[in-house]
Design a protein around this nucleic acid. Structure first.
Lengths: 188, 188, 188, 188
DNA sequence: GATGAATGAGGTTTCATTCAT
DNA sequence: TATGAATGAAACCTCATTCAT
């Protein structure tokens, strides 16, 4: 049970879950997910004891994936704006390159299946992003607001930007840049 | 003539659907919804021939509810900022007063069950809000961006603000105001 | 209840039932039948207290319709073969002209919803047909067989003939005649 | 490998379906069929993905059962009459021994649930019966009639014969023989 | 460990019939 | 008498999960 040792199968299940959920929503059948991963129905349950557990792991995986991407090339010494831009552009780049991942991520964010505990668990992976937003929360524009407001704002504006970027591939670059300009005007 | 269809029952079903969906998501069982509305299982289907139809009507109802509220006291002659503030504060006020309505609205926004046709149908109800955002899209900060970007940005930032307001009832007023300030700095 | 006095509505329901059952089978919904008769759902039940009763009445109606047709122009004094031909050609003519009636009749013949009592009740309407078949059962070819065997044989062979006639409208006349020749060779 | 699909369970479902349909018609509930086969409701659907598929398979099964019986002891070298008699007596024997099978077969013959494709599929199983009827269609009595008319006639007359045989077990042998004599007089 | 058949609760929808209007 | 809304028992089918192989 616990954590059997074929990581490729585990990955295959997670990928299949992403593809399936992107297509039909969180109601995706475990049997379909397993088949898409080219595994038997039952096998899924040796890797994730419950559908809810799969969903929680998936949530964590997606968050980690994104944060890993951001942290890999994080310009620790750059200006606040440049660091904010890094986070913004990495996030949107990821969303654009992996639309299914993003779609599932949005659904999981809203789902009650993902526990508070899981959500907290992913906080640890944020690394440099955390210090960035801590710094931002100190700026005049956000002073006095609850912790995390700056991050939530960025996330919200990314959502909005993504919706348009998804519809107009040609204008992506422009939208990402202008979107950031708007964001930066708000919190600068 | 037989007993006419009872608008109160229709409402009761919609209210029950809101409550139920807020609790368990769009997977809410029609049987549970009917029971919550104190009606027999089958009765639901004389008012909405399909669960999908119920969901679509619910979407329209919620949108109309909000837009009606906004339009009722719309300050047509006020400055752009004041009108934007009106929309912002009405929307957040509504979300705060009817958290279940908002929760369901968010879920429906993302659901494939709500058809493009339904979404277009609600556009008509927007009234003064439309002209406001058309005007905003002309401003320097948004010029060149796709139509609707300003509205999407407001909506996104409201989401973010709401998440915090929901958690800290005490700070609501402050959050709503400061949230708007941030928004306005971005698009002004 | 019993037998209310708008015979046109009664007829309308029976006709609608024929059309509906021909299309979707005996599972046809009473509500659909009523609507097709341009009546309200409930009205059907003031004319037929039960769906089963409707089915039984329909069975009787269809049988009577056919027997009335046969008896209307029955050549009482003609030869046995000529009288048999009359029955054969009337029956097939009716089936060809009213394919839905025939289709429903076949279904009702097999259905348990039609009671033995109803089946017996229609025997009375047979009139001249009965004496014809009684006479036929006396012939050498059928002597010793149970009563009604000649009639059943004709009915069966009509079914077979009809199936082909329905598929090849052009050959109808020929099929009806040759079919009868086959039948007559068997029982003559 | 997991437990393989169990052919006995498949059979059990088909048998249960026959029994149930013979009792209540094609409207027989899948749940009742499953219970009668001593299986869980859901299990039925691992063997037949749909009620319609079950019905189609059942149709094929019944046809094959009968044709297998006929072909097993088919007197290929006998005279036309003797071969016709073989088909006639095997068919009626089967109907008499398995009245439920026959009842269901008749219902399925008329049902729209059985697709044209399924019907064609069973043609292949007919084997020697096909050549017999092809030969018969060439005889003077049937010449010029559509292909299959001889077979349809036999089938129709068997139906008639069966109805009487079912009611008078004592006279079965006589009815089967005399029935064939009538048939043979017709098509000879 | 991997497989997929087995399970039965639960989901949506249909429908004959009743009954307030 | 006519109407059609109300009812709730089925009906068919799906699905997470278990367990024999």
């Amino acid at each position: 049970m616990a954590r059997p040792r074929d990581p490729e199968k585990r990955r295959a299940i997670l990928e299949a879950a992403i593809a399936e959920i992107a297509e039909v929503g969180l109601g995706a059948a475990t049997a379909k997910i397993a088949k898409r991963a080219e595994l038997a129905e039952g096998t899924l349950f040796t890797y994730f004891s419950t559908k809810d557990e799969l969903l929680n792991e998936l949530y964590a995986e997606l968050k980690n994936e994104l944060y890993a991407l951001i942290n890999r090339s994080f310009p620790h010494k750059a200006s606040l704006e440049q660091r904010a831009w890094h986070v913004w552009s990495c996030s949107l780049g990821w969303s654009i390159e992996h639309p299914a991942h993003r779609k599932v991520s949005v659904q999981l964010n809203l789902s009650d299946a993902v526990t508070a505990e899981t959500r907290e668990r992913t906080v640890e992976a944020r690394g440099a992003v955390d210090t960035l937003f801590a710094e931002m929360d100190e700026r005049e524009s956000l002073r006095g607001m609850p912790k995390g407001f700056g991050a939530a704002t960025m996330s919200a504006m990314q959502e909005a930007t993504m919706d348009f970027a998804a519809r107009s591939p040609r204008q992506r670059k422009m939208l990402v840049e202008r979107g950031f300009r708007l964001y930066w005007r708000a919190v600068r």
